[in-house]
Design a binder for these strands. Sequence first.
DNA 1: AAGTGGTCTAGACCACGGC
DNA 2: CCGTGGTCTAGACCACTTT
Lengths: 267, 267
Amino acid sequence: MAAAPNKYESIRDQVLDLVHGLDVGAAIPAERELCEQFGVSRMTLRRAVDDLVREGYLDRRHGSGTFVAEPKIAQQLTMTSFSEDMRRRGLVPSSQTLSLTTVTAGAPLGRHLEISPRAQVRRVRRLRLADDRPMAIETLHVPSELVPGLQARDLVDTSFYELLAERYGIEIGAGLQTIEPTVLNAEEGELLDVPEHSPAFLFERTSRSVGGRIVEFVRSVYRGDRYQLQVELRPPRTRGGRADGERVSAQDPAIASAMQTHPNSPE
Amino acid sequence: MAAAPNKYESIRDQVLDLVHGLDVGAAIPAERELCEQFGVSRMTLRRAVDDLVREGYLDRRHGSGTFVAEPKIAQQLTMTSFSEDMRRRGLVPSSQTLSLTTVTAGAPLGRHLEISPRAQVRRVRRLRLADDRPMAIETLHVPSELVPGLQARDLVDTSFYELLAERYGIEIGAGLQTIEPTVLNAEEGELLDVPEHSPAFLFERTSRSVGGRIVEFVRSVYRGDRYQLQVELRPPRTRGGRADGERVSAQDPAIASAMQTHPNSPE
DNA sequence: AAGTGGTCTAGACCACGGC
DNA sequence: CCGTGGTCTAGACCACTTT
């Protein structure tokens, strides 16, 4: 059970257990009481509770108490696969492999994958469907050496991330995704069953293993009429505290917008 | 400038000033040294530095020191105004009011603002520029009764949120923003100085005051060639600490993607 | 070994909410 | 008023990195 070396992590887990036994809206015991119960100082107890508040399990009300929070509507967008993403919305994901080829990386792809331009890359093009209607076209690139023996049928009804983990022992650690608006070309329109020039999202995702190595570069085009993003915006400062007219503080980076300074990024 | 009631906020700002005078990668003074310099305890100093680390200004290296971080490609998107958003990227924001009118809400707008369809609404249309080049067209709707006496010049070089806070005492508490790809029509293309049918982002934002009342509904169209979104994807679990198989922890919900079930939203 | 950040304590006082 | 969370202190010891 990988005992936490830190007291506050252990306390966090214990308080979380306590929370699980309570109803939404119920108050947890006062901080000083919990301190005594767990035998820790208030600073340590608060650090544990701070975490749970950040994670959305608890709400604090100054002068009143700490309460079990409403389950969040918008859960974190983590390292979700297409299948996960669709299932979460009550749709049935499916997939149709359009092509599975091996190509030489070349300069731009080599840069994205941080490998030699002469390295071999497996390239999978898939049509992604939700409730049997086209949703996106996904083009996935993986360094060949990472996935020896990869075959088209491996991808039929398995999440690619599961495949990576279970067959190749590769654990995804982090990713960066850029999002742009685009319009569909004729071929994309036909595949997605919408008119050419329809608006669409272009996602480009780069994922790294826990070791820091780039595992995949994915380029996906999503139908703009079926797919929409939602962002929950939080006020600059979590606290009631004011001040700081100059800069907006950031609680925890998750989404950011960035300028594309050079519209002609060599890709 | 609204002196911070909290010592750690004031310290945060002072440390940030210090950081601004250093190069990327340079070490800041040791924590104990800063404590003495600012005359605060180490816990307080650390809380200030914690914030700056979370905000991406500093990197800590255990046993080694605290260093000025590489400017983040992906800064946090909070309840940021356009001006903030641009400034953060080193661009100079400006604004050009295209129109300021009063209209009757009507059904769709009334629904967005949660007011009567017969209520009056101030409607501001603005061209938003970055470094004097068009970036977005923003159409803002606010219930008239919330902003009596609003004039066009009020919006010239003030953040709308500042105006709300300082003049009308309205504090923004939370917001929900949807993002879709779209293409520009002829008028939008002309205003933004790009060809008609160019890809663009359509943002729709609904903001609530801390009291829960809807304060604004904003519809913005951003040039797709100049504006790009970035999402940092994190794996399901951040810590090494395990336990809790049941619920996916949310470090901090910020973005979620949602399906648009009915492509013909009556808007 | 010396210096750094990381954790933790046992208090204290303040600010807010509700009785 | 009392109980709650919010801030702050002045230490202590631990864990890690560097020399």
